[in-house]
């Protein structure tokens, strides 16, 4: 297995709180890796660590041979040009139309003329079903449409790595199905390495080649979807079946409920 991203002994803290402690994981090249886990476990943070938007407190994140933590600003921006990221909110540029949003990376980093850029933008928008919305402004799009437009922008340069932060959240069943197919097609047709952060167990497991399950700042399971489904680990079973009772607490740590209710000033 050829490795595209290597995370070694990673520790990351937000204030006093440890998000990751001594985590090691590998993301294979040309495959779809689903990173799953309960809310607040640091899935989006992992994408930001890979993109170099936050730096590890200890350990290394190596993306395609580049040590992100030690890269200069210039090296970092060069490495990012090979990455595409779909943000949870879409993060479309609000002062540009959908067309201009998708065209921006092409204008910045390719020598293509206006006609070529127009054709590529229309192709990317067609693939996410938004060719007809090319002239709309982001404020005129629904949440799901904005996410799809952002996906078209993320894949505009045909990057080597695409990171999807909750791509299925807020999508209707039709769009969800189209997105699942699109991620799969992108991956197989262009040999893109995909990292998918999602809560949607069924959709993620249906397209992932490799799964990393995070809990309590650690990787509790890394393997194929079949291995995840067959796992008897209580934490994995609880997550996959959505049970509130189990080793992963639903409640944020607090004093006893009864004591707090009866407590008087």
């Amino acid at each position: 297995m050829e490795v595209y991203i290597e995370v070694n002994n990673l520790s990351f803290y937000r204030g006093e709180r440890a998000i990751y402690e001594d985590v090691t994981l590998q993301i294979p090249k040309g495959k779809i890796t689903a990173v799953m886990g309960p809310s607040g476990v640091g899935k989006t943070t992992l994408l930001r660590l890979i993109g170099g938007q936050v730096l590890p407190d200890a350990g290394t994140v190596i993306v395609d041979g580049v040590n992100i933590g030690e890269a200069s600003r210039r090296q970092l921006f060069e490495a990012r040009r090979k990455m595409g990221m779909l943000f949870q909110s879409g993060a479309l540029f609000s002062d540009m139309s959908v067309f201009e949003n998708v065209a921006l990376p092409l204008r910045e980093f390719t020598p293509f003329d206006a006609t070529m850029i127009r054709d590529i933008v229309l192709m990317k928008l067609q693939s996410v079903g938004l060719r007809g919305a090319a002239d709309l402004m982001p404020s005129e799009l629904s949440g799901g449409m904005a996410r799809r437009a952002a996906l078209a922008r993320a894949i505009a340069l045909d990057p080597d790595l695409v990171m999807y932060d909750e791509p299925f959240a807020g999508q209707d069943p039709i769009s969800k199905g189209v997105l699942v197919d699109l991620i799969k097609q992108l991956n197989s047709a262009a040999n893109i390495t995909s990292v998918l952060v999602s809560h949607d167990v069924e959709e993620s497991l249906s397209i992932a080649d490799h799964v990393c399950l995070l809990s309590g700042g650690k990787v509790i399971l890394a393997g194929t979807p079949e291995e995840v489904r067959a796992s008897t680990d209580e934490r994995v079973v609880q997550f996959l079946q959505g049970q509130s009772d189990g080793p992963v607490p639903f409640h944020y740590p607090a004093m006893s409920y009864q004591e707090q209710l009866l407590e008087r000033e």
Binding site: A91, F93, L104
Partner: peptide, 8 residues
């Protein structure tokens, strides 16, 4: 962040 991740 989006600009940063785009390499801009």
């Amino acid at each position: 962040s989006s600009y940063e991740m785009m390499g801009i």
